[in-house]
Write a protein that binds this DNA or RNA. Sequence first.
DNA 1: CGAGTTGTTGAGTTGCGTCAACCGTTGTGG
DNA 2: CCACAACGGTTGACGCAACTCAACAACTCG
Lengths: 237, 237
Amino acid sequence: MPHRMLIARLQAVAGLTQQDRCALQSLPYSFKSLESGDCVIREGERPNACTVLMDGFLARRRVIGDRNQISAFYVAGDMPDLHTLHLPTADHDICSIGRSRVAVIGHSHLMGTLTASATLSHAFWRETLIQSAIYRDWVENLAARQALPRLAHLVCELAARLEVVGLLREGSFTLPFTQEIIADACGLSIVHINRTIQELRRQGLIEWEGHRVELLNRSRLQALAEFDASYLHALRR
Amino acid sequence: MPHRMLIARLQAVAGLTQQDRCALQSLPYSFKSLESGDCVIREGERPNACTVLMDGFLARRRVIGDRNQISAFYVAGDMPDLHTLHLPTADHDICSIGRSRVAVIGHSHLMGTLTASATLSHAFWRETLIQSAIYRDWVENLAARQALPRLAHLVCELAARLEVVGLLREGSFTLPFTQEIIADACGLSIVHINRTIQELRRQGLIEWEGHRVELLNRSRLQALAEFDASYLHALRR
DNA sequence: CGAGTTGTTGAGTTGCGTCAACCGTTGTGG
DNA sequence: CCACAACGGTTGACGCAACTCAACAACTCG
């Protein structure tokens, strides 16, 4: 099951040989369920396994000054700690937002199959490069846009990434985030996020209640955010 | 000569076998000199080569709204477009700031040596992962810090990265950036960058005139910026 | 039922942006 | 050789986006 997720993702992102698919399918793994707030890894740890997010959401967080800054979100199919294969020390906490399930694959097994296949190696590398592209987009979003388009951009990105893994249905998706989480990711105060969400509602762009977000006018929302999904590159179904 | 730079960098970042060093040394390349403002690649292009920055500075830029946002700086030894090996379409301009020199290595040659050596492949992969760590740090810096520590952090990062390649001498380094460039990178206005630099001077933390930056009190500057170089990971001499 | 989240609102404050002017340096051409 | 334009740095006045503080409402859960 995590194999199917992983294979589908890498297939979308690169191209796999029959051999590669077999190699992936024989990777041993274990499952782990996370409650809201549980961490996959913590800053400073030297993990010996990577995780594949099967279900739910994870956030990469770290305390900066008096803020609890979030620098990335992960959705189903993502491997939030793939980099620990080559950079052994984790520099952030990676925590569950709401409940989630992950598959855990030991570094040694993963490394074994990677050194055996150059194409697989490149497929995983490519996966990390797409994450880089997302970080760059966050840099631009945080530096250049003010609250309204900044929040709109985040919503567009989450929608686009969820769409890739089939979790966007009729323009709406599940998002178990509090406004505090959103504020920590956008570099804005909770109060201002609250007012900004209201403004998006007022403009008829989204509906957002409880854990459900609905895109009422996706093209106008994307225009407001200057959103262009091409930076997600290979991420196609 | 670009080989020496490349080998030294990858050696610092990972570990190379004798064979790997030979493979790198036999990579064919050409040189290119850039004037201030010249681009290595432009958004939308599909380059067939990667570049190694030999001398000078490059910036990754893109227009966001009415801003000319910079999302990364590159110093000697960096490979700013290494990702084009796997993500063919460039999503930013990469331009020279002041004069610079780069070595150009064709994708096909690079790809050839990479598929031949798993360790080399992983060394380059690791290089891109370190760039990712830098992007994440920029996300945090932009989202969580206000002008003074934000600027201080950028100065600390540049100093640390230049130190790795031996371009920091007695706490001072060459930086051919205008205040406008700094503003574009920090997500602040030119006027405010100007006042913030003055505040750093007033506090006796840096001297900055013309193209020369001097760190007068590095530890206090790093404390102000909450700077911790460990996110540059393997980047050691 | 009370206690703890999460969302919402109002009032006052502030960090940073905008506009506009001025200064010093550099380079260029009449 | 000087006039002048272009550029980068600096300063002051004013405005606004976003922050802080504080209170309250709605909801969940023990």
